[in-house]
Structure formats: structure tokens, C-alpha cells
Amino acid sequence: MNFRNARSGAAVAALTMSFVGVNFAAQAHSAPLHTPTTRAVTTKASSGWIAERLINVRSLGTSCGKTPIAEASGRGKMTLRIDQTESVSTSLSANINVTKGVVSAGVGWDVTKSRSITVSGSKEVPSGKYGTLKAYAKYSGKKFDAQGTNGGSWMTVGHNQTAYKPIGVCFKYSQR
């Protein structure tokens, strides 16, 4: 292969696949500086693959959940207060075709565990108004591609998969 004329991504992918194909316990990866972080994880798989890995692991930043985990409402003048602890689960793409252990190793946290989130907040409701304070889980996310092999070439078995872990709380206040 002429590496001088090959595009950097294709050359690295070809080189990585030839090294990893030799020994399934090996981990070999490299990425050009301008591409997202690549985190290859190779393991003996229980999902039907001889080995599986995550590639192109990249951060999605933070976002708020869509379903409230706590809520308080009332007519003012009053203070709405939420003080409680909730167990919030990790969120994964629906059809991830690699084991959760590989996903956990690739994203950097245990995707099978729920986390305990303390919800504590308050908001003054003005006199004559009706206020609602809602708390939502705040998540940190990662996006990745999943690959598996049965001894030959690596096959993509999931593109743009996601994993989110709860890291805190977002509040939304409305009044009428």
C-alpha cells in the first residue's frame, strides 16, 4: 500500500485493521489529529462476535432530559421548593449490537448502573400567579460507532450510537 498517496484516514484504518486482525487480544489504533477521539476496545464477546470495539468515540456535551423527575406547583405569593433524591438510569441507543461491557469501557463509565441525583431547588411565585417548577435529569453524552469481527475484517454493527449518563439537574420554571 502506498501510504504517501493514500488519504490519512484510509491509511490508518487499513493499518489498524491489519494489526488487530492478527491477534484479537491486541489493541491497535491511531487517528489523524483532525478526527474525533478513537477509543478501540477489543474483548472476547458474548454477543456472537469473536471481538468487538468502539471507534470514533466523541463527546456530545450536556443536555437535559425530556421527562421531569420532580415537580412542585402552587399559587403565589409562595416559594416552590423541591428537595429529594432520585435514581436516574443511563440512557443507551436502542439497538447497540455489542456487549454493554465494551460500551462501558469505550465511553468511560458503567452503562449498566443508575446514579443517585439530589434534586434541590426553589423559586418564588409572585402574588396572584400560579407557578410550576420542574426538575429534569442533566446528562453528559458520548456518540460512537460499534464494530465486531468473527475473525476476518471488522464490520460496523452500529453507526452514531449514543450513551448518556446522569450528572445533575436542570430546572424549568413557568407561570401563568
Results as ranks from 00 to 15, higher is better:
residue 174 S to A: 13
residue 97 N to G: 09
residue 135 A to P: 10
residue 25 A to G: 13
residue 143 K to N: 11
residue 107 V to W: 03
residue 39 R to H: 10
residue 1 M to Q: 09
residue 148 G to N: 04
residue 12 V to N: 10
residue 162 T to L: 08
residue 26 A to R: 06
residue 74 G to S: 10
residue 134 K to Q: 15
residue 8 S to Y: 11
residue 65 G to W: 05
residue 135 A to F: 08
residue 43 T to E: 09
residue 34 H to P: 03
residue 70 A to H: 02
residue 99 T to H: 04
residue 82 I to S: 01
residue 106 G to L: 09
residue 109 W to Q: 04
residue 161 Q to S: 04
residue 72 A to M: 02
residue 24 F to I: 13
residue 14 A to Y: 11
residue 7 R to S: 13
residue 117 I to G: 02
residue 8 S to E: 13
residue 131 G to K: 06
residue 30 S to H: 10
residue 118 T to K: 15
residue 44 K to E: 09
residue 37 T to I: 10
residue 13 A to Q: 15
residue 155 M to I: 14
residue 139 Y to T: 02
residue 144 F to T: 10
residue 141 G to Y: 05
residue 145 D to N: 15
residue 21 G to M: 06
residue 89 S to D: 14
residue 29 H to E: 12
residue 114 S to D: 13
residue 69 I to L: 07
residue 133 L to D: 07
residue 8 S to L: 15
residue 45 A to Y: 00
residue 11 A to N: 06
residue 106 G to E: 08
residue 99 T to D: 15
residue 124 E to Y: 13
residue 47 S to W: 12
residue 105 A to V: 01
residue 95 N to T: 15
residue 59 S to M: 00
residue 26 A to P: 00
residue 162 T to Q: 13
residue 105 A to G: 05
residue 95 N to C: 09
residue 89 S to V: 12
residue 61 G to R: 07
residue 171 F to Q: 05
residue 168 G to I: 00
residue 47 S to R: 08
residue 151 G to Y: 10
residue 174 S to D: 08
residue 158 G to A: 06
residue 69 I to N: 01
residue 46 S to N: 11
residue 45 A to I: 01
residue 10 A to G: 04
residue 107 V to D: 05
residue 82 I to N: 05
residue 137 A to Q: 06
residue 158 G to T: 01
residue 10 A to Y: 10
residue 38 T to Y: 03
residue 108 G to Q: 00
residue 55 I to A: 12
residue 109 W to M: 00
residue 103 V to I: 15
residue 84 Q to N: 10
residue 176 R to L: 04
residue 21 G to P: 00
residue 151 G to W: 05
residue 162 T to E: 07
residue 137 A to K: 10
residue 114 S to G: 07
residue 74 G to R: 02
residue 51 A to W: 06
residue 158 G to N: 02
residue 73 S to W: 03
residue 73 S to R: 14
residue 74 G to D: 03
residue 108 G to A: 00
residue 61 G to I: 03
residue 67 T to V: 15
residue 29 H to C: 11
residue 42 T to G: 09
residue 173 Y to H: 05
residue 158 G to S: 06
residue 6 A to V: 14
residue 11 A to F: 11
residue 171 F to I: 05
